[in-house]
């Protein structure tokens, strides 16, 4: 059965909550090779005028698509993915930060669908125009 069967625009296909800690940022720094200290050093973040240590934008982009992949369950693949970084995610050293991602069907055609992502932290969206093109396996 195709992942596209019965899919309707506006339908929420997945939702997931991502609790981030400073450990998450250090892990992403190591895995990605992005060692910009604003992602793990409070003194450096403060010196450049930031409200605190920030999650890498690419970390947020990286996990925000995961609910879509889990929903796909190998019935298709992500053939295009884009985001704009609109607001930073400040990760508190003790409390961390919680980002909630909702994936909604934006458009459906014969070969795939556009899934729109909403990523929310502290009641504000942190990604703009976050769109995932999924291509269905026949």
């Amino acid at each position: 059965m195709s992942v596209l069967d019965g899919l309707e625009v506006g339908q929420v296909v997945a939702e997931r909550v991502f609790p981030l800690t400073r450990d998450s940022l250090v892990r992403y720094a190591g895995a990605s090779g992005d060692f910009n200290p604003i992602h793990y050093r409070d003194d450096v973040a403060a010196a450049v005028g930031l409200p605190g240590v920030l999650a890498h934008g690419m970390l947020t982009m990286g996990f925000a698509v995961q609910p879509v992949i889990d929903w796909l369950d190998a019935r298709g693949w992500v053939s295009d993915y884009q985001v704009r970084f609109t607001r930073p995610v400040v990760v508190d050293p003790q409390l961390g930060a919680v980002v909630t991602v909702t994936a909604t069907v934006g458009a459906v055609d014969d070969t795939g669908a556009r899934i729109d992502l909403t990523a929310t932290y502290s009641d504000q969206t942190v990604l703009g125009k976050a769109q995932v093109r999924v291509t269905a396996f026949a």
């Binding site: 992403y28 190591g30 895995a31 990286g62 996990f63 995961q66 369950d73």
Partner: peptide, 21 residues
């Protein structure tokens, strides 16, 4: 390693057998 860092839990990122399937 990258999959763990971006909270990617789907088996096809971790398990070669799941990916081959």
């Amino acid at each position: 390693e990258f999959a763990r860092a971006v909270f990617a839990t789907a088996p096809l990122h971790h398990d070669p057998e799941a990916a081959r399937a």
